[in-house]
Simulated assay, not measured.
Amino acid sequence: MTRRRKVGIAGAIVGAASAGVAAGVAVKRYAVGRIRLRPDLEANEPFGELRGRAQTVTTSDGVGLHVEVDGPEDAPVTVVFCHGYTLNLDSWHYQRRELRKEHRLVFWDQRCHGHSDRCSREDCTVDRLGDDLYEVIQAVAPGPVVLVGHSMGGMTIMALADRHPEVFEERVRGVALIATSAGKLAEITLGLPAMFAKLVHKALPPTVRALGRRPDLVEPSRRLGNDVAFLALRHLAFGDSKNISPTVVDFAETMIRSTPIDVIADFYPALMSHDKLSALPVLERIPVTVLVGGEDWLTPPDHSKAIADSLPRSQLIEVAGASHLVQLEQPGVVNDALRDLVSRAWRLAPERRTA
């Protein structure tokens, strides 16, 4: 096997979490072709087309963050959405579509993702993301806020609690932590037997570093490997993969593929070393919803249960059959949970409202 072919396969592994389902080009194309022939109720959904009032928030270290504000400006609460690793603000498509009439919404691309500026590898840390969120809140979210984070976005909220606990006393009225973890991501099994999981975790860090150093070789291979990524992402990130819309899978895969491989490599060590369990008590006085897919292999339900156990007053929702991209797979469940959270946040803390 040539070096280029090896790098191409490895790029697909990182870009879509795993490409182990690829058993050959002919089989792959046949499988994808059969999937795409099924009825697709989401075929006409305008993914990536919903837009808000765009602006740029420049951080204290000079990074321009792309921000979009949606919904009525006079809404009593602003809901701030923090997306996950390798995604962008469009990953909240269904939440924007359904909640924009009710609430003032803020969506932002985390540094190096989407339309936000790149930064140095040294600044690709979860702590820096927490600082970014603080600056976004200060710039575009006046008054009470509810924070919603998916995967890395949930870690961003935990970093905010760790570095700026005062904002939870003064501004934050509720938090939703979706398919995320407070730490120990390096111990997840990805649904593999323990021995194989150990080998994967041993091999991934050097592989990711190597890929990040040669984006010129990896990126063309990622573009050529769309069917591999489609099957892998459908298998790992969506629980009920037989019924998930191919258009939704394509949409998620496009977001992942648009994230440069060196960005994926730069953030990977920060996510594996993330540990913010000690910051969770900052959230004890506000309503917290912890939501996870029952079939999530990337941030397994046990990680959400550990968060909920640290926050006895929190509400834990495990969505049966769903996986890591639960906000795309089961948007109705997620939207209902967010509506309930905003209602509880406003109702249970009237004495803390900001005029």
Rank of each mutant, 00 (worst) to 15 (best):
A159N: 13
L50F: 06
G154C: 02
L341Y: 05
H201N: 07
L231C: 06
P76R: 13
Y268K: 07
W92T: 03
H201M: 11
E169Y: 02
I157F: 00
P281R: 12
I9H: 15
R347D: 11
V32E: 07
V140W: 14
R34W: 13
V146T: 12
V7R: 15
S116D: 10
D109K: 10
L133V: 05
E170I: 00
L211I: 01
S91C: 05
D117Y: 07
T78N: 15
S221I: 00
D336W: 07
Y268E: 01
L105Y: 08
A26S: 04
I35T: 01
A270C: 09
L99C: 03
L325K: 03
K198E: 15
P46D: 01
S314C: 04
V249M: 11
G321L: 00
F196C: 00
R100S: 12
R163F: 01
L99W: 07
H324L: 03
D275G: 07
A210R: 11
V326A: 06
H150F: 12
G225T: 03
W108N: 08
V249P: 01
L177W: 12
R173P: 11
S278D: 13
R53S: 08
G130L: 09
D227C: 04
A159C: 13
H201F: 12
L291G: 02
D109A: 03
V292D: 04
A306D: 05
V248M: 14
L236M: 15
V146L: 13
H115E: 15
A355I: 01
S60G: 10
R347E: 05
A176P: 14
I178H: 14
V126E: 10
T2S: 15
R121I: 02
R163E: 03
T156G: 09
G24V: 08
W108H: 13
R53N: 09
D302G: 07
D123L: 14
Y268V: 01
M255G: 01
H274S: 10
A31D: 00
D296N: 10
Y30E: 08
V63Q: 08
R339Q: 05
S323I: 04
D127L: 07
E45P: 00
